[in-house]
Each structure stands twice: as structure tokens, then as C-alpha cells.
């Protein structure tokens, strides 16, 4: 039997509990990550929603920055929601701030407004590689907007004109919060990516060999 994938949820600040619950419900082995060394123990990583100014401060102070930048290259996919997407982006505007640069997108912070403008709408997500279309909900909380995407980016979902779920290689980003819905569709999509990455990662699949 294949070993369940382990998902490391960055637990410095933010809604890591909601992510842990979502991935736990899919049978993943969920770990909270508070130290850079713990990254190597997970098959995939999640950067949750939260406040990017707080997260940048803690990531820098604790020596996470370069370790996270290297993670997709070592076959560990990263999934960022909302604040996580902002941290993964190549470029961040309004205000301009530093980011990991792992996802070739331009992200505008709080572009959907303040909390009184936060909203939930029904939406559809395309599975990677032109797969099946699934119905879900998009929960936007003081959400950032993806203003532009690079050529390598696969847009998996849109709301009105803007991409809201994007993938490039082993990096997945959402401007909404799939962890605040219970259908597990986007979490399942990420788990599939992590399983795929583990197959090809050197020494990655310890479960069934």
C-alpha cells in the first residue's frame, strides 16, 4: 500500500488549522512547520492565509526564505492561498513588497477591497492538464488579485476576468481560500500534484518500493 503523502503546513501565523483540517480529511499525514529543517520531512508544503507582513518578518528571522525557494526544485510542491499566493508571486504591487518569486504572476494586494467587501461565490475549477471541471465555491477574504500571468502558468480557475487558481510546475496558488469550504476539491488537486512529484523525486516514494 502506498504511504499517505505528508503535507507540511507552515504554522508561523494564519489559518493553518483550517488547512490541517482540510488535508487531514483527505487522509494526509499533516505536520505543522515552525522550523526550516522540518520542510525536508514533508512531501508537499502549504503556505496558509494570514498577513504577509507578519509572515515575511517571521520567514526572514527564522531562515525559511532560501529553503522555501529551493523546495519545488527538490520535488516538494508548494501551495499558497491568499497571503501564501502573495508570498509565492514573482511580483507584488499595492504596496510593492518582497516575495519568494516561485510563481510567475503579478499579484495586487487587497484588490478585492477591505473586509466589508469580502464575499463567497460559486465557481469552477479545472483539474491540471486540461482535466475535468469541478464545481466549488470561492471564499474571498480581503483577497489579492492576480493581474498578470507568465507563459508557463496554467490557469485552473477564474472569477470574472481574473485568474484565481494558477499552477506553474510544482507551485500552486489561489487568491481565494479553498480551506474554508468543505468539498476538498482544491486540496485534492494539490495532493495529486504532491503524489506525482513524489513519484519522480529521487528517493521520494518510500511507501511501495
Amino acid at each position: 500500500m502506498t504511504k499517505p503523502v505528508s503535507i507540511g503546513v507552515l504554522a508561523l501565523q494564519g489559518d493553518c488549522a483550517a488547512h490541517a483540517k482540510a488535508f487531514g480529511a483527505l487522509g494526509c499525514d499533516v505536520r505543522e512547520i515552525r522550523r526550516p529543517a522540518e520542510i525536508a520531512e514533508s512531501d508537499g508544503l502549504v503556505i496558509p492565509g494570514g498577513e504577509t507582513t507578519t509572515l515575511i518578518k517571521l520567514l526572514r528571522a527564522e531562515g525559511f526564505w532560501d529553503v522555501l525557494i529551493r523546495a519545488p526544485g527538490t520535488g516538494r510542491p508548494i501551495f499558497g492561498t491568499c497571503a501564501g499566493l502573495i508570498l509565492l508571486a514573482k511580483k507584488v504591487v499595492d504596496p510593492v513588497q518582497e516575495s519568494l518569486g516561485l510563481l510567475p504572476v503579478v499579484v495586487r494586494r487587497n484588490a478585492y477591497g477591505r473586509q466589508v467587501d469580502s464575499f463567497v461565490v460559486p465557481g469552477q475549477v479545472r483539474m491540471p492538464g486540461g482535466g475535468e471541471l469541478k464545481e466549488t465555491e470561492f471564499v474571498f477574504i480581503r483577497a489579492p488579485r492576480i493581474d498578470a500571468v507568465g507563459p508557463s502558468v496554467e490557469v485552473l480557475a477564474r472569477h470574472e476576468d481574473a485568474p484565481v487558481l494558477v499552477r506553474s510546475g510544482w507551485v500552486l496558488g489561489a487568491s481565494f481560500h479553498p480551506e474554508l469550504t468543505t468539498d476538498g476539491i482544491v486540496a485534492g488537486l494539490f495532493v495529486a500534484l504532491v503524489e506525482e512529484a513524489r513519484e519522480v523525486r529521487p528517493g521520494g516514494n518510500g511507501g511501495n518500493r
Partner: peptide
């Protein structure tokens, strides 16, 4: 409560 979730651990 979505925003309150985002403020956790802060």
C-alpha cells in the same frame, strides 16, 4: 469568521 481565521497565531 474567515478573517478571524486569518488572524490566528498573531
Amino acid at each position: 469568521t474567515g478573517l478571524a481565521e486569518m488572524l490566528k497565531g498573531g
